[in-house]
């Protein structure tokens, strides 16, 4: 499903280049649940952003669903990720002015999904994540765990094939974290969503099917569980 070839990312600092990612090769198959680990500053977020097409690599090739992403135009790239990739953030990034319902609905609006269909999809998601009772609340009225739940529901609303999560439990306590991880596992196993998450917690990493260790912009180890 996803294939990175010799992906590098560097920044120009003065005269020399500082490599954040250095010739990374990575293949992820449909249905995998990958956890990326590594010390702070090792390039985990950068890697995830490149996979999610929010950021572009300085060098290298990337194929997603057999499309050569490095050759696509901005418009095509954005169409590709809009339909196939969902994001979950450490800081949730819910939109303050929107209710839970509207937050979940937003990606559908941007994909011009019809109103009736939207309603059905959002109702479904509310139901599935057990947040029907909270649909008219604003983010500020929810706990961290609940906010992240909404964040995940929003990421999954347009049925992406790949879910990217950057430290999804970083702002949560361990119990809330566990619940999120259970949810990920269920999504992966029952719905077949491919997941790539960045985490600092050894325990959370164990939920996945593979652990990749990044060190200084290179893959240090890749362990299949």
């Amino acid at each position: 499903m996803l294939s990175l070839k010799q992906i590098s990312k560097y920044y120009n600092t003065g005269n020399n280049k500082t490599y954040v990612l250095n010739k990374v090769d990575l293949d992820v198959e449909q249905g995998e649940f990958v956890s990326i680990m590594g010390p702070s500053g090792s390039g985990k977020s950068t890697l995830l952003n490149i996979i999610g097409m929010l950021d572009q690599p300085s060098e290298g090739y990337m194929y997603f669903l057999n499309e050569p992403v490095h050759q696509l135009k901005e418009k095509q790239r954005s169409a590709l990720y809009k339909q196939n990739i969902g994001f979950v953030f450490q800081a949730y990034h819910l939109i303050d002015e929107l209710t839970v319902y509207e937050n979940i609905e937003t990606p559908l609006l941007y994909q011009d999904v019809k109103s009736t269909e939207r309603k059905a999809l959002v109702a479904d998601a509310l139901d599935r994540f057990n947040i029907v009772g909270k649909k008219d609340l604003f983010p500020a009225q929810l706990s961290g765990g609940q906010q992240q739940l909404v964040g995940i529901a929003r990421a999954l609303i347009s049925k992406p094939k790949l879910l990217l999560a950057d430290e999804p439990t970083g702002n949560l306590n361990s119990k809330q974290g566990e619940e999120i991880m259970e949810l990920f596992k269920k999504l992966n196993q029952e719905d077949g969503v491919t997941i790539i998450q960045v985490t600092h917690s050894e325990k959370n990493a164990q939920y996945g099917s593979r652990i990749i260790n990044l060190l200084d912009g290179k893959i240090d180890s890749s362990i299949i569980l």
Partner: peptide, 8 residues
Amino acid sequence: TRKVLGAT
């Protein structure tokens, strides 16, 4: 966030 969610 909106951009990530697909807004142009």
